[in-house]
Write a protein that binds this DNA or RNA. Structure first.
Lengths: 254, 254
DNA sequence: AACCATTGGTTCATCCAGTGAACCGACGAT
DNA sequence: ATCGTCGGTTCACTGGATGAACCAATGGTT
């Protein structure tokens, strides 16, 4: 609508992020924007310190960590994180397994924090990982608390399987979401990564709106069915605490 | 120089990031850009999903976590992280203290990864934290391996004290950097946060250029002087391993 | 209760910054 | 020797970006 050069610049930025190290022609083709324009954007973004020419491969462009630094202070990021870190820390100490804090972003769950297990056998996700909602316990947990519209839209899009165990059938996913709602926590057995099981619980923000989720993850050899209930309830208690701080149960409405 | 609307947009974005929830007039004043322009930028960025109106306070603008998602895939971020995680994991298990991975960003150290201690008494930094170089072991470690020009420039700017123990005297900091260079690791006793001591070691990238640093941190009650050498040498070994993977010692030059 | 200084947000004539087709030299594969 | 691709450059044209002046609304002072 307006400021189209800014739109182009951001599109270039996102394309670079997706194609890491990205070539000029490649970007031009993908975005359907003339090379000259793409290059101008890249140069401008480079001046600002958001992208740089790859040192390994000249002519290839990559994001800088300055981009990361600026964006780290994401709003819901820090608000939720501030509320979550204390309770999450306690949960990690209780369970001794890795716990994750995730927020939704365009059909994915974005991992914004992690507290890890002391066990030698560790399975964790890098900060900033984006997980498909249907393939993660955090995603199913989030969907279980989200508005129907969000669930419908998500399930309408084609779903990808990450492992042989990933559930991609919408009907089956709806059933899982229902179970999660009833039980209070979601269970993902190797749907994200083979050998990893995880338990998720949604977080609610002001007005009871789904704001994100937390999870307990570990090797399937350690997170066995006999522990599901214990971990699920522990996580649910932690989530309630965080949601309260976020104002989920506040009566004040303004 | 060119594409100034893009420059303005990014400046607006960074200003929002710094002022979290930021008002229109406030941004306009700070950036010295007319309100109309700032607003147009905000609207455009909002369309793209990078900023949004705060739900709590109408008219205030905040970053979304989409911004975070895009920027998380920072180049040096993942290259360094990939190289570092294995050795860092081993270091954490060896020492049982919290270890951090940090990269430089405009006078700060940016924490891009963390592995936690199993101890109940924990001291950790949120991922994405930005620490002043002079107040962190990672910062001093980085500076000890950086080019003189970088050190000179950093020390020329005014330095802020975060605790009563923070060293802000340039001469003293130079001495610390020298010691770090000689010894192989830096020590920060409560300069960042009261009660926290940490040991840092620089990481070298291709061509031996300082690329970041790692650190071991914990409560000053546990990280006592008697352990400095042990931890320092352990971290130095880990750093050497990571630097090798990054190509610091490669003879190939292209 | 009139006043003033803010706030977020809007309008629109002016003009310069952004656009993109066509171009270049370099490299690799055939 | 030829082709296709790469990253990068040029430049005339024009439509998108600019910013001073303008609202209406809020809240603190007197």
């Amino acid at each position: 609508m307006s400021t189209q050069s800014v739109v182009t610049a951001i599109r270039v930025l996102e394309a670079v992020s997706d194609n890491q190290p990205a070539g000029l022609s490649e970007l031009s083709r993908e975005l359907d924007v003339p090379k000259a324009t793409v290059l101008r954007m890249l140069r401008t973004l480079a001046e600002l310190g958001w992208v740089a020419q790859s040192e390994a491969q000249a002519g290839k462009w990559v994001l800088t960590n300055h981009a990361f630094a600026v964006a780290s202070r994401g709003s819901s990021g820090s608000v939720i994180r501030d509320a979550a870190m204390g309770p999450l820390n306690a949960l990690q100490l209780d369970t001794t397994e890795t716990v994750h804090l995730a927020v939704p972003d365009r059909g994915h769950m974005l991992i914004i924090e992690r507290l890890d297990t002391p066990h030698v056998l560790r399975a964790f996700l890098p900060l900033g990982s984006r997980l498909p909602m249907h393939a993660s316990s955090t995603g199913i947990a989030y969907l279980s608390a989200a508005e129907d519209k969000i669930v419908d839209e998500y399930l309408a899009a084609p779903l990808e399987a990450l492992t042989p165990q990933t559930v991609i059938d919408p009907a089956q996913l709806r059933a899982m979401i229902g179970e999660t709602r009833a039980r209070g926590y979601s269970i993902n057995e190797q749907g994200l990564s083979t050998g990893i099981t995880s338990i998720g619980v949604p977080l609610l923000g002001p007005g009871g709106v789904a704001a994100g989720s937390i999870s307990i993850s570990g090797p399937s050899s350690r997170i066995v069915p006999a522990k599901y209930q214990e971990y699920g309830e522990a996580a649910a208690g932690t989530a309630r605490e965080i949601s309260r701080v976020l104002g989920a149960f506040s009566t004040k409405t303004y």
